[in-house]
């Protein structure tokens, strides 16, 4: 019978309906009449073939065959003859193995710093968590911190993970503790590395991360490459003081043979204390002007539904075992459960364990179709990161300002239809 993937969402507006997939952000628009016909077929438990046979007009039959193919293409319908794959495998598990750090970056969303904080777990406790992670076969495991390489047992942990895990193992580090004596073993144990740099030279990097970091990181990159290891990303968090260096940052990465990642600044952790300094209030860039340079087809193609996987496809396990939806939703109110309470991290067990915490409820309330945006017909296109909603949900003025700046244009982008091409009559 015809049934949609559990991550599918429908939005009705006037005589049009959008069916989209939160898993990949893709969507398709059809008339309400078509949707209602399809819905009738679904409610009756019809198969695709049975539904097609209910259509008397051959054009309609062809149209719905085409629609089914498109819905299959965006994973809303299962491949023909196969049951729906409501895949609940974790895509990405972050494991912060310490909250200590040897740097004290001014924008750190984790508030990690030297001389304070804790490792949280013993080596054996960490092994136990790694066993649980490996058992549920996530696509990607990222070891992070704090600065993970500060732990005395860091290489023991990495080797233990590598021996048991065949997926993609990545390391998120500040890159200052890589040296000629440990680079070879590091390069053998991980698949990729993400090093924070936040600048293009000593001055710009030191402003954010402290003196001497720039040279140390570029040296670490060279050491890794000397070992034949090239899957290296360098990241920069975009703040007022380095925004003008973005192009240079891309050029630097090209020269170094690394991949550039530019992230938006999140005012949480130490970043919250520094937010007025790092990103003082700007007039919001005119959304209409920003989007006005592009044609409708391009904008609709680019505008995906919210695919945020926080708590659904990805989680962060903190140094003390607390589990959060992602690295940016690490406040107590979003704690989903503790890894120490779980026999396994498999989805169904995980979801049951979360029931005794309020984190899931608070996370659900951030989703645009559950929040104060629930009646808006572009809500799932307006937010791409639930942490943005978290920052704004209690600030009525800022929330309304953001909404006002984009809602009209977003409605126009999502719900408009291209002008029909005039037929030439000969």
């Amino acid at each position: 019978m015809i049934s949609f993937h559990k991550e599918s969402r429908t939005i009705e507006h006037g005589n049009r309906v959008i069916i989209g997939n939160l898993k990949n952000g893709q969507w398709i628009k059809l008339s309400k009449e078509c949707y209602q016909a399809l819905k009738q077929g679904m409610d009756l438990g019809l198969t695709e073939e049975q539904f097609i046979n209910c259509l008397e007009d051959p054009d309609d039959q062809n149209y719905f065959k085409q629609l089914f193919e498109k819905l299959r293409y965006i994973d809303i319908l299962a491949p023909q003859g196969k049951p729906p794959q409501n895949n609940s495998r974790w895509k990405h598990i972050y494991f912060a193995i310490t909250n200590r750090c040897n740097l004290s970056c001014i924008h750190c969303c984790y508030n990690a710093k030297s001389g304070a904080g804790a490792d949280g777990m013993t080596t054996d406790e960490l092994f136990s968590v790694i066993d649980k992670i490996v058992q549920c076969s996530p696509e990607i495991v990222t070891i992070s911190g704090g600065e993970p390489m500060l732990r005395k047992d860091f290489f023991e942990i990495l080797a233990y993970t590598r021996q048991r895990y065949e997926g993609k193992l990545t390391l998120s580090t500040n890159g200052t503790l890589i040296h000629s004596r440990n680079v070879r073993i590091l390069a053998r144990l991980i698949d990729s590395i993400d090093i924070s740099l936040d600048g293009v030279d000593e001055a710009s990097c030191a402003y954010i991360r402290g003196p001497g970091v720039f040279d140390k990181v570029t040296e670490s990159v060279r050491l890794l490459q000397k070992e034949g290891f090239y899957k290296i990303s360098l990241s920069m968090v975009s703040v007022d003081q380095n925004k003008h260096l973005e192009e240079q940052f891309h050029l630097l990465n090209k020269e170094l043979g690394t991949r550039a990642i530019v992230r938006h600044f999140s005012p949480i952790g130490r970043g919250y204390i520094q937010k007025d300094h790092l990103s003082p209030f700007h007039e919001i860039q005119d959304f209409e002007t920003a989007t006005g340079r592009f044609d409708l087809e391009f904008l609709q193609s680019a505008a995906s539904m919210c695919t945020c996987g926080a708590g659904k496809k990805e989680i962060l396990i903190d140094y003390d075992g607390s589990i959060y939806p992602c690295g940016l939703l690490i406040q107590d109110r979003y704690k989903l459960c503790s890894v120490h309470e779980l026999e396994t991290l498999r989805h169904e067990v995980f979801e049951r364990s979360c029931a005794s915490y309020s984190g899931t409820k608070h996370l659900d309330e951030l989703w645009p179709d559950h929040s104060k945006c629930k009646d808006c017909k572009v809500n799932l296109f307006c937010w791409s990161c639930l942490q943005h909603m978290d920052m704004l949900k209690d600030d009525e003025e800022a929330f309304n300002r953001r909404c006002k700046s984009r809602k009209k244009q977003l409605y126009s982008i999502i719900w408009s239809e291209p002008e029909p091409v005039p037929q030439i009559i000969r």
């Binding site: 398709i28 009756l44 007009d57 149209y63 498109k70 680019a302 505008a303």
Partner: peptide
């Protein structure tokens, strides 16, 4: 049994968006 004689309102181009 469901019987649909003719759909009168169709968006002719069923394009996938949001890629």
């Amino acid at each position: 049994m469901l019987k649909i004689v003719k759909i009168t309102d169709k968006i002719e181009k069923l394009d996938v968006k949001g890629q």
